[in-house]
Computed example of a mutant assay.
Amino acid sequence: MLIPAHFEDLPFDPQRPRAPRRQLRLESEGSTASGETARVLIHNISTTGLLIESAVTLAQDERIELALPEVGNTAAHVVWMSESFYGCRFETPLPASALGTLELFSRVISKAAPSESADTLPVRIARLRKEQGLTLEALAALVNVSKPTVWAWEQGKTRPTPERIAALAKLLGVNEDELLSGRDGNALAQALNQARQVVAEAFGVDPARVKVSIEL
């Protein structure tokens, strides 16, 4: 479930003069009614809490309010954070029926999600990690990042930095070009060698004299 949303600042609360009050509003059409730019993505939501990605910096145990259809304003607290990802727990669990309504919002951008069959960088990272027998947590520890960060790479939410790409390629058993492009360098080299051998045998020349040109 992926739901676009945005933060709106709530009026000053004299009971909590130092704590900012924010309300998280869903965007059923992918745009804000008020023109706010504090965009948020709700990645997962359950009856007990939710995982959000936000450029707005939240504090540990910060209280936010969510405007949810069929439920109204619902309070949640930040219980963990990792870079731009925040795990929040509802003060009062949601009714199970509310999740069905929220599912409708996620369908708005479901077509924009990368295809599972497409050979993209996120797909390659996930596939190679599994081939190496590594869990999200294990790969995160080896690359010295958080588990949600690796999860975000594999979901296409963020992209590894060049330094992380180098470390990932080494840990996943491929070179950097293969990780970034999906091209198997070893397979290409073998194919070129075979082509040289075939041409050399046909014309009776040394394979080293055969040059192969590839047009893509």
Rank of each mutant, 00 (worst) to 15 (best):
E62Y: 01
V212I: 14
K147V: 04
R22T: 03
Q23T: 12
L216I: 12
Q190L: 09
F12L: 03
F12A: 01
R39L: 14
I125G: 08
L216G: 01
A141I: 05
A138P: 06
S46Y: 11
V174D: 04
T161G: 14
V145Q: 11
S146L: 03
R18P: 00
D184L: 02
R39E: 10
S110V: 15
Q190D: 02
M81V: 11
L188D: 11
H6C: 09
T158A: 13
T32P: 04
E103D: 02
Q23P: 02
V40L: 10
Q155I: 03
A126K: 12
A76V: 05
K211I: 13
R159C: 08
G182Y: 12
E83W: 01
A38S: 00
E103Y: 04
A55V: 09
S82T: 07
L50S: 06
R39W: 15
A169D: 14
V174F: 03
E137S: 13
V210S: 12
A126N: 12
L10D: 02
N73S: 09
T48D: 11
N144E: 12
R25H: 09
H43Y: 07
M81Y: 01
V150A: 08
A140M: 03
A76L: 10
S46Q: 13
G72S: 06
T120F: 07
F105T: 00
S181H: 08
L142Y: 08
G49C: 01
R63H: 06
I3R: 10
A67H: 06
T149M: 04
N144H: 08
Y86E: 07
R63A: 01
R25Y: 09
E27G: 07
V79S: 06
E163W: 04
F203P: 00
S117F: 14
E27Q: 11
P114F: 05
R18Q: 07
H43M: 02
E178W: 03
E70G: 10
A200H: 12
P122L: 15
V210F: 10
A75C: 03
K211T: 14
E36H: 05
T158I: 12
R21L: 06
A138Q: 12
T135M: 05
P160M: 06
E62R: 02
T161R: 15
S106A: 15
L50W: 03
A191N: 07
N193W: 00
V212W: 04
R209N: 15
G72L: 09
G133N: 07
